Each structure stands twice: as structure tokens, then as C-alpha cells.
Amino acid sequence: MRNFTPIDHAARVSAIRSLLGTGELGLDALLFTDYNDIRWLTGFTGSNGWVVVRPDQAVLGTDTRYGERAAAETEGSDVEILAFHYRSELHRALIKAAGTGTVGLDARSTTHAQWKQLAVDMSLASVESIVGMAREVKDYAEMERIEAAATAADAALQEVEPLLFGTSDLPLTEADIRDELEYRMRRHGADDRSYETIVAAGPDHAARPHHEVGRRTIVEGDTVVIDVGALVEGYHSDMTRSYVIGEPTAQQRDIYELVQVSQTAGLAALQPGATAAAVDSACRAVFVEAGYADWYLHGTGHGVGLQIHESPFHSQVSNDVIQVGNVVTVEPGLYRSGFGGFRIEDLAAVTADGHRVLTHHPKRPFNTSFST
């Protein structure tokens, strides 16, 4: 039984309406079409809809498949629900709800064709989504759900990890490990997986940061990268652990240790006021100094919330600044075809005095005995 703190959608809607009421935005209304923005603002989880917020009202439009669901999910949020059978009716309702003034819309949440169609009937202004920016900082209720997702993934990996090291009587494939992880995450309270679970084994597959799981049998000598996350009430978790099957070589030990040192440096740099680029640099500098810069094939991390990848992004080209309430990954890795690869990833909540790690499964790449 879940006893999460309720999310106060009414307060969120009120805050957006208040911003418009002050006039400082220079807008008469805001239109939201991104489904994650809509969910964060109102609680509605359907796959068709829009929200118009004006100083005096907030309206959610959807089709009749979702009418009752929208009313139930937004109850108490002071959002008016409009549900229509035909797309043309829904479009006319949107035009009416938006009014005759200037309407702010994040151009990234709609296609060029949709923008052109809307612009025929309303005065649009391109603005960065206020909800999108607010979503970067998680409140207590959101943290509860993210931590529950992380706990489910921790528990699943705790149960499945021994299978890698011979506690199963049968040869196991990447797909076998993936399937066990996803089943057990649900058993531990997840609604779903957070993303396509990655189990990448061997000198070629483990060299691909986003390998698609196949039927390859996991064998002695393999490096194995497992990237696993759970989904709870729309909120994601994200974690990666890496392994060597059997006795590791000296090279495998050295490169794993290098990744571990890099991740420790990245976590140490994760604090409010730091730039996301500085977090990336802290990890990257370890690899550059050791001569492995060209083995590092991606950025160091990203925000996590209603989306598995959202701001802030840790990379050399990022302009993001870390804030209290961000939930982010720190996930350096080294990869090379013929060798395989290692990645170590933790999810962390940024706090006033640094950060708090949310993923707790131990990092034990070479262990070959487990209590079951």
C-alpha cells in the first residue's frame, strides 16, 4: 500500500495563474501541450490534451476517451475539463479558452505545422515553458516517488545479481537478466521499467553505451553493464552497475578502478551553484589524465523526474547550473570494442550542503559469492 504525500496540483495551477495576473510576463495566457508539463501541472496522465492557463481560469481540453479520467485525476486542482469527440471541436474549444490576447507557448513542445495551424487563430509568443523550468526542482512529494522507484530497482538488482555469478543452473542470456530485473522491479512496487533496461555483455555489446538487449549468452571473461531503472507514479529512477564474469584481468581491474575514481570525482563536484559542465569536467579530467579520453563516449549525466532525461545535463556544452532540489545522475564510463566497457551510475538529489545518493545497491564488480 502506497502512502505517498499527495501532489498539490491546485497550488501549482494557482502559482502559474498568479504569474500571469501580475502582468510581468507580458502574456494574457499560457498554452501547455507537452504531456509531462500537463501531468506536472494538473495530474492528468492521458496521451491527448492541452492546458490553457489564464489569470482567472485554467482549462484542460482532451477527447472523450479521457473525459472521466481527466476529471478524476485533476479533482481539487481548480481545472475546468472540456472533452470533445471530434478534433475540430477540441480545436475550437482551445481557441475560445485562449482568448484574444497574446498566448505563450514553448515552441519545443509542438511541431512547426501545429504552430502554424494555431497561429492562424491566436496570437502566439514563443516562451520557455515555465512548468518545464519548475519541473527541474523536485518537491518532497516528487522525491518520495523517485526514491520509491530507486528502491524498487535496488531490490531487483540485489536479487538478480547473483545469477550473473553462477547461482543459476542454466546458461543465462542478456535477455534473461533483463526479464528477471523487470519482473522483480514490479514485484517490489514499480509500475513499470523506467526505460529499456540495458544488459550489455562481452567485448562488443558492453562497448555500446546504449546497447539493445539480445540473446547473447553471458560467459566467463565478459564485462557486463547493467543499466536499470523503475517507474513509480510517473517518476523515474536510473542506476548502472558493471561486472566482470569470472576472474578479472589486470586491465579489467585497472579500467574499472579508473571509472570508479571518475564517478567519485563527479559526485564530489555535485553541489548547488556548481555548473553542470563542471560536474562533467570532474569526471572527464580523470580519464584525460590517464590517457583514456577517447574511451569516454557520452556526457556525465542528466536530470531525472517525469522524464528519464531532463535538465540539467552534465556535459561540456551545458549552460545549466545545479540547484537544490535537482535530481541527477552521475554516470561516467569507458568503452572500447574488443574490450567491452564499464559504467557506474548513481542517482542523487542535490541538497543545501551537497547531495544525497538515492541508489544504494553496492558496487561489487568482481564478487563471485553471494548470500541468497
Results as ranks from 00 to 15, higher is better:
residue 67 G to Y: 00
residue 233 E to P: 01
residue 275 T to S: 14
residue 205 H to F: 00
residue 34 D to C: 13
residue 350 V to W: 01
residue 332 P to E: 02
residue 75 E to W: 01
residue 113 A to T: 12
residue 29 A to K: 05
residue 294 D to I: 09
residue 41 L to F: 08
residue 38 I to Y: 05
residue 282 A to H: 02
residue 14 S to T: 14
residue 347 L to H: 05
residue 244 V to N: 07
residue 150 A to L: 02
residue 115 W to I: 04
residue 9 H to S: 09
residue 156 A to E: 06
residue 244 V to D: 00
residue 212 E to I: 15
residue 29 A to V: 03
residue 298 H to Y: 00
residue 145 R to E: 02
residue 5 T to F: 03
residue 237 S to R: 05
residue 92 R to T: 14
residue 151 T to Q: 12
residue 271 Q to A: 15
residue 116 K to G: 06
residue 102 T to H: 07
residue 208 R to T: 13
residue 340 G to N: 10
residue 189 G to F: 02
residue 121 D to F: 13
residue 275 T to W: 00
residue 180 E to T: 03
residue 368 T to H: 05
residue 160 V to R: 01
residue 111 T to F: 09
residue 97 A to M: 10
residue 341 G to F: 06
residue 258 L to W: 04
residue 18 S to A: 15
residue 257 E to W: 00
residue 73 E to N: 06
residue 142 E to G: 10
residue 332 P to H: 02
residue 84 F to A: 12
residue 3 N to G: 14
residue 275 T to Y: 01
residue 69 R to D: 00
residue 370 F to D: 08
residue 349 A to E: 00
residue 191 D to G: 07
residue 27 L to H: 03
residue 142 E to M: 04
residue 107 A to C: 03
residue 113 A to M: 04
residue 364 R to C: 01
residue 26 G to K: 06
residue 268 A to I: 00
residue 251 Q to D: 13
residue 45 T to G: 10
residue 227 D to A: 14
residue 86 Y to R: 15
residue 232 V to Q: 05
residue 300 T to E: 12
residue 258 L to K: 04
residue 107 A to R: 15
residue 171 P to F: 01
residue 24 E to P: 06
residue 221 G to H: 08
residue 44 F to Y: 14
residue 184 R to N: 03
residue 276 A to L: 02
residue 221 G to N: 11
residue 311 S to T: 12
residue 46 G to N: 09
residue 132 G to R: 10
residue 323 Q to M: 10
residue 117 Q to R: 15
residue 196 E to L: 14
residue 80 E to C: 10
residue 56 D to I: 04
residue 110 T to L: 09
residue 225 V to K: 04
residue 318 S to Y: 05
residue 57 Q to F: 05
residue 26 G to S: 04
residue 15 A to N: 08
residue 179 D to V: 00
residue 286 V to Q: 14
residue 251 Q to N: 11
residue 293 A to P: 01
residue 249 T to H: 01
residue 209 P to F: 12
residue 103 V to D: 11
residue 126 S to W: 06
residue 50 W to L: 08
residue 12 R to S: 12
residue 237 S to C: 05
residue 349 A to R: 07
residue 247 E to M: 07
residue 295 W to R: 05
residue 40 W to S: 08
residue 349 A to I: 00
residue 178 R to D: 07
residue 288 V to N: 04
residue 220 E to Q: 14
residue 260 Q to N: 08
residue 290 A to H: 13
residue 102 T to S: 13
residue 72 A to Q: 11
residue 311 S to Q: 13
residue 172 L to M: 07
residue 292 Y to P: 03
residue 48 N to R: 12
residue 190 A to D: 05
residue 90 L to C: 06
residue 323 Q to W: 03
residue 102 T to A: 14
residue 342 F to E: 07
residue 229 G to C: 03
residue 330 V to F: 03
residue 105 L to S: 07
residue 1 M to Y: 02
residue 47 S to L: 09
residue 197 T to H: 02
residue 68 E to L: 07
residue 127 V to L: 10
residue 101 G to E: 12
residue 370 F to T: 08
residue 56 D to E: 13
residue 280 D to G: 14
residue 269 A to E: 10
residue 235 Y to H: 13
residue 57 Q to Y: 07
residue 310 E to Q: 15
residue 161 E to D: 02
